[in-house]
Design a protein around this nucleic acid. Sequence first.
DNA 1: TTCCTTGCAAACGATTTGCATTGGA
DNA 2: TCCAATGCAAATCGTTTGCAAGGAA
Lengths: 146, 146
Amino acid sequence: MPQQELDRQVAERLSSEGVRYTVGRRAVVEALRVATGPQSAAELQFAMGSSLPLSSLYRTLMVLEEAGVSVAHFSTKGVARYEMAEWLSGHHHHLVCIVCGQVEDIEMAAGQEQMLHQMVIGVAGGLGFSVAGHALEIQGQCRDCS
Amino acid sequence: MPQQELDRQVAERLSSEGVRYTVGRRAVVEALRVATGPQSAAELQFAMGSSLPLSSLYRTLMVLEEAGVSVAHFSTKGVARYEMAEWLSGHHHHLVCIVCGQVEDIEMAAGQEQMLHQMVIGVAGGLGFSVAGHALEIQGQCRDCS
DNA sequence: TTCCTTGCAAACGATTTGCATTGGA
DNA sequence: TCCAATGCAAATCGTTTGCAAGGAA
């Protein structure tokens, strides 16, 4: 999604939550937008020039998450990683490097995604488990670490 | 895998690592064996009667992981969850309850697993990413939380 | 003025580590 | 005897929170 459009959507969401879309929050949203995969708080802070204090950053991430703008992932040891919610970034999965820990977004062809979804429904349905979503994590070594 | 056989395998692995298979470590392995999904350190400690100090438990889990006997997962916010490695427990995936955080093991039919594997190889191969494994996490509400 | 937002410092909670003690081969 | 294993307490690290100051409506 282009910056302008995304910004508008986020502004609307935050407004409907009764919170402001401040300069600091815009900076975090922009950092999330340009990222090629979920980012840790430290990585986001660095990407923004280390200006925003971590406490403010975490608070912003919490506000964004409550507004449904961002989501947190915990696949990597100990550190949370944040990214735009899928209604803003599109549905995708993750390549996780087992050497350096970097996480990269990856999209699957619609047909495959469809198949995967059927699989998920089929396997969970019989267990009284109501499916809300799925996440496929592919583990291996990234180009740099091979 | 039956307890006896698993115990033998673990004993062999630890022995080849030059570490002992002590009473405390056996207790942790047994707690992991009977679990129906990855357990947090606190859950394991409770399952074992709260006798083993957390520091020892964490050290044991580290030893087991280094020996390839157990693995750690971080899908839930803040807490690590541990389970037997797949060569001991069999390949499986996880149902994660987005309400209570509980994680349950789930196995897929061989055919579906095969399909999934092909999907993974296909999607990651073109990116210079060498695949070591995959993990499908199904998010939703468990029977108790629906 | 009235809240929302921010920054700093302190608090928290899960996990790790230092160190002295215990225990198995 | 000797070194791995253990328990306790203290340290670490990512994340959260209390509180007073700053800012927009």
